[in-house]
Simulated assay, not measured.
Amino acid sequence: MSHKQLPPEFYQLMEDLQAVDFVLVELTLYLDTHPNDMDAIKQFNEFAKKRKRLKKQIEQIYGPLQQFGNSYVGYPWNWDDTPWPWQI
Rank of each mutant, 00 (worst) to 15 (best):
L17A: 10
W84K: 07
F47S: 09
F44R: 11
F22P: 03
N45L: 11
Q18I: 05
G69H: 03
M14P: 08
E26W: 02
D39E: 12
Y30C: 00
K52A: 12
I88D: 12
S2K: 05
H3G: 02
P83R: 03
T28Y: 10
L65I: 09
E59M: 10
E26S: 12
W79R: 10
L31N: 07
K50P: 14
E9V: 11
P83N: 09
W77Q: 09
P35C: 07
D32M: 05
Y11R: 02
Q57E: 15
Q18D: 12
F47W: 08
D37Q: 06
A19M: 14
Q57W: 12
R51G: 11
R51W: 11
D16A: 15
K4D: 05
A19L: 12
D32T: 03
Y62W: 09
E46R: 14
H3S: 04
S2L: 01
L17C: 04
P83H: 08
P85F: 13
L54Y: 10
K52G: 09
A48H: 15
G69K: 06
F10E: 06
A19R: 13
V25P: 03
Q60I: 05
V23T: 15
R53I: 15
K49L: 12
Q87R: 02
L17R: 13
R53G: 09
E9L: 06
Q5V: 02
I58C: 04
N45G: 08
Q60V: 05
D32A: 06
E46A: 14
P7H: 02
I58E: 04
L13K: 10
L13N: 07
L6W: 07
P76C: 08
N78K: 13
K4R: 03
G63M: 04
I58M: 04
P8L: 02
I61V: 10
N70I: 01
D16K: 15
D37E: 13
P35V: 07
V25A: 07
Q5K: 00
Y11I: 03
T82K: 12
Y75V: 09
A48K: 15
E9T: 08
Y11W: 05
P85M: 05
F22C: 04
Q43C: 12
F44W: 13
P7F: 01
D81G: 12
K4S: 01
L29P: 05
I61W: 01
L13H: 11
N36W: 05
L24R: 05
S71K: 06
Y30H: 03
P64N: 06
S71L: 06
P76G: 08
E59W: 07
K55N: 11
P85V: 07
F10K: 01
P35A: 05
F10Q: 02
N78Y: 14
A40H: 09
G63L: 04
Q87C: 08
F44D: 06
Q5F: 00
D21W: 08
Q57Y: 13
Q66A: 03
L24P: 12
L29T: 04
Q43P: 11
A48R: 14
V23Y: 10
S71R: 04
T28V: 02
A19K: 13
Y62H: 06
L29V: 11
K56T: 14
G74K: 15
K50W: 12
Q67P: 00
P64K: 01
E15K: 09
E9F: 06
Q60K: 04
Y75E: 14
E26N: 14
F47E: 10
F10T: 02
P8F: 00
D37N: 15
K50H: 10
D16H: 14
D37T: 06
H3L: 01
T82L: 10
W79E: 11
